[in-house]
Design a protein around this nucleic acid. Structure first.
Lengths: 194, 194, 194, 194
DNA sequence: TATGAATGAGTGTTCATTCAT
DNA sequence: AATGAATGAACACTCATTCAT
């Protein structure tokens, strides 16, 4: 499908994301999306094969935003000590979550819609998975962090940071009440091998 | 009068839970549920006011299971040092999650269906909330654990343990590969004030 | 069907009538009726063959009330001058309508439910019809009232008196603001041959 | 885009009206209507917001027909003596009813469905109401007609004329057996002040 | 590219009716 | 006589999707 109006596809995705955030992924319908964007319902099908494609596109777009931020690269630099690289990974997630406060929620919503229940939304995203998993695994092998399933560690990282962003959005506290070190020490204190 | 089939209500709830686990809460429909149970669709409405009631009943049933296990009581015993009580709380969640491997997933699914995004499913369950929150808050006040938002701590506990049960269900490792101490040290190491 | 509780059948009819008056005949359902009476839905079927029978019974009961008042007999007395007998008929309808302010409404509602549109609800009730028709026809033949279709005359009588009772129920004026003579002169003035 | 079928909306309204006339307003269902028109059930919702809108549209269409005939204007002409204007009003209703023999029935059916019991269907139609009420009220004030509630007079006019059209439809007599003067004298004879 | 029209399958829900107790 | 349980058919309504323009 060729597109003339370059802004329309993202606008459709934006509308979809908005609905997901407000009403949950299950509440998405092409009718609602079209109404939000101000286009006809059938127009959606020019940009997305079907509803599934639409929702998965929202999902993929959020995942791509992570790549775009690119902070993870630090974690792959083999010349840096592994503990610092783990910290780099946590920092990358933290920065990303603050910069894109809805991303984690969107990703989780879509996954829950599909009936999968992983607490760690990044799990099935190969590129990151590999980077993150290998850093953590290295750290485990080096005796720097505890020998526990990597998925547990990732889940811990994401749940803590995601909860933080949700708290911020709900104005449960001010954004400068806690800084990265707070969350880092919470996470690192748990995983580090003593 | 026809005698009441005492097993039917739970069977309907079971079918609903099964669908939620397999396809996600959004995929629940009265038709599917009825077909699962082998009754007519309208029969569902004899046991549940409407679809919402049905889904909320699944939700409530899981929450009640937590009460039934009652392990949390240890955490409220003021004569025990607060650090031990925090451990008691973590143990209670752990035991419950292992005994009811689907509960956390069911609860999260229902909450996600409603469009809420809390990582911690116990949050809106007053009784537990109060107990857990007050124990953690006490521990913070006593300088035993780090002064971070209680919601972060709870979310950490749940995500780690939930991920563990999911891993077990997916046969990612054997159930005796890791024991409670593994998860406790992971969590406690993070939250404890050093 | 034999009935033990002699009061139950009328109570069911009362409930049905109440619903008809409040929500219209189309809104009657056995569920609602049973709930109103405080019995089980299926119990209704012990007293009435089906929903149609129930509604028609309400209808018939109202028609029977007219017979019970028996004021019409005056109209049949051949020894009385026909003009007086016409007056007797109008008076009978008037008295009946005031004594049973809901009857005409109930009858009309049922007829409208069935999709018939006669303005004169008594039309298909043989006994009265005969009496009334023959009095009016006699009056026409005697040159006392205008030679118009009898149905028009009856419809005029009923609509005027019915509207009056509705006005009273809606408190549009007090019940002693107008008396029988008002309506009689309105009706009689129209039909009488000058 | 598929070109709009201009005839479809009226065809849906026609089908609905037909059902109302044959089976009563309570018997209208979107399935029946669609089947009548030969379209899919959901197509009805492209033209009418919901079933209520559909039925009210039938109602409104009939009321608009009255405006379209516009004969009532004569009744508002202040330069004409009030008695003549009352006659103009009655004539307008008569002409309208003959030209649109189903209109009064349709209007009444819809009103009865809504559970209202007014005998006079024009009552809640502000424009006409105002015109008619004020003419009649003027006539009362001028001592030309009897001082009775206006609603009674209107109800008399409508019931007589409506019954006439029903009689015609049922072939109870030929359309030229009676003319306007018959009904006018019946009505006017009743209301006029002597 | 874009749209309005159309549809068929689906949803939740109500209800009249039957049946076994 | 009375009831709770059960059902199947109906209903209003929504939605994903297709098609002709």
């Amino acid at each position: 499908m060729r597109k003339k109006d370059e802004t329309k596809e993202p606008r459709i995705l934006d509308a979809t994301a908005e609905i997901i955030l407000k009403e949950g992924a299950a509440a998405v319908s092409t009718v609602k999306v079209a109404k939000h964007v101000g286009i006809s319902q059938s127009n959606v099908y020019l940009y997305f094969k079907d509803k599934d494609d639409l929702i998965m596109s929202v999902y993929r777009r959020e995942l791509n935003k992570i790549d775009a931020t690119g902070d993870l690269e630090l974690a792959t630099d083999q010349s840096i000590p592994v503990a610092k690289r783990v910290r780099g990974y946590i920092k990358a997630v933290y920065d990303f979550a603050l910069a894109n406060p809805d991303s984690l929620t969107l990703i989780q919503q879509v996954k829950f819609l599909l009936g999968q229940h992983d607490t760690n939304p990044f799990e099935d995203y190969p590129e990151h998975e590999n980077v993150v998993i290998s850093v953590l695994q290295e750290a485990i092998d080096a005796g720097v962090i505890k020998p526990v399933p990597v998925s547990l560690l990732m889940s811990m990282v994401f749940s803590v940071i995601h909860t933080h962003t949700l708290n911020l959005q709900k104005n449960r506290y001010a954004s400068n009440d806690y800084d990265f070190e707070t969350f880092y020490s919470l996470i690192w204190g748990g995983m580090k091998q003593e």
